[in-house]
């Protein structure tokens, strides 16, 4: 896999406080890398250093492609933009020094892939947060970029807008774009990220817990008549809790092996049990999210 950026021994302090200390890792072509960590752990600072917006106190960023173009999407979306997306992208392109005959097809292409063709003549100030965020990503992609940097792309979006933007990011991933982003959202990390770096105590560590999605066990909750016996199933599960819902029905929570799940579900349905919840257990994932 081709390395596009090497981050070597980056250290950054802010007002005498160490934010990042001796950080080194590499970014590869066509990969999506996610940076996770607690608030104030230095994710945004690291992204800004990679994007060339902030200088590190020490260390070097080696770019292996020349010229290396970076698209940057800041965490906060401007609240007032007095232009339509078409006008806005045109102005940003002109400011970049792009010529009109190169710019217009690119704007049309971006409006198309981001599904904003229908809103090309609407002022951005009238857009929803999700649509504004799309425009922000579009401005970062005006020129062919070697690396797209997204700082908390889903922050402040409602679940529908998040889902919509996740689809867009998946599309960009499928097109082979190299992306580095900071985020907290489970789905984004699980579905899009190829590699996850966790920032903790000013250091960056690669975290593979979340990417290993192999499930071994499931948590099952069901309701069953008090008269009904399911002792024959006991060897196949571990009872976590049994409680009485009313005088006729018990609620039972059990843990079952992945390979036994279908068989047990079938047996329980034959015994007129009502399945209330079936949930995969991933202790690694739970441990991961408990970190921040």
């Amino acid at each position: 896999m081709k390395t596009i950026v090497d981050i070597k021994n980056i250290t950054k302090q802010y007002k005498g406080k160490t934010i990042l200390e001796d950080i080194s890792f590499s970014l590869f072509a066509h990969q999506v890398v996610a940076l996770v960590g607690k608030n104030g752990s230095g994710k945004s600072t690291l992204l800004k250093i990679i994007g060339g917006l902030v200088n590190p106190d020490s260390g070097t960023i080696y770019k292996h492609i020349h010229p290396f173009t970076i698209g940057y999407v800041p965490e906060v979306t401007p609240s007032t933009i007095m232009f339509t997306p078409e006008e806005y992208l045109f102005h940003m392109g002109c400011i970049r020094g792009m010529v009109k005959n190169q710019l217009q097809p690119r704007i049309d292409y971006l409006l198309d892939i981001f599904n904003l063709q229908g809103s090309r003549k609407t002022r951005i100030s009238d857009f929803s947060k999700g649509m504004k965020q799309k425009v922000m990503i579009m401005q970062a992609l005006l020129e062919e970029t070697n690396l797209l940097i997204l700082d908390e792309p889903l922050s402040g979006l409602d679940p529908k807008a998040q889902s919509n933007l996740e689809d867009t990011l998946l599309l960009l991933k499928d097109k082979g774009l190299s992306i580095i982003l900071s985020c907290h959202e489970t789905k984004l990390l699980e579905n899009i990220a190829d590699k996850i770096f966790f920032i903790n105590n000013h250091q960056v560590n690669q975290n593979n817990l979340l990417l290993n999605t192999t499930q071994h066990r499931n948590r099952l909750t069901f309701e069953i008549s008090i008269q009904e016996s399911f002792e024959d199933l006991h060897p196949y599960f571990e009872i976590v809790q049994t409680s009485q819902l009313n005088q006729r029905v018990n609620v039972v929570k059990v843990i079952i092996k992945l390979e036994d799940t279908d068989k047990i579900l079938l047996e329980l349905l034959h015994k007129n049990a009502s399945i209330k919840q079936l949930q995969p257990i991933n202790h690694a994932k739970e441990d991961f999210y408990n970190q921040f």
Binding site: L53, Y72, P74, P78, S79, T80, I95, R96, Q139, L142
Partner: peptide, 13 residues
């Protein structure tokens, strides 16, 4: 210019 937009404009210029 909006303060956040200014950062984006500076990135382009």
């Amino acid at each position: 210019e909006d303060e956040d937009q200014k950062i984006i404009t500076l990135l382009h210029i």
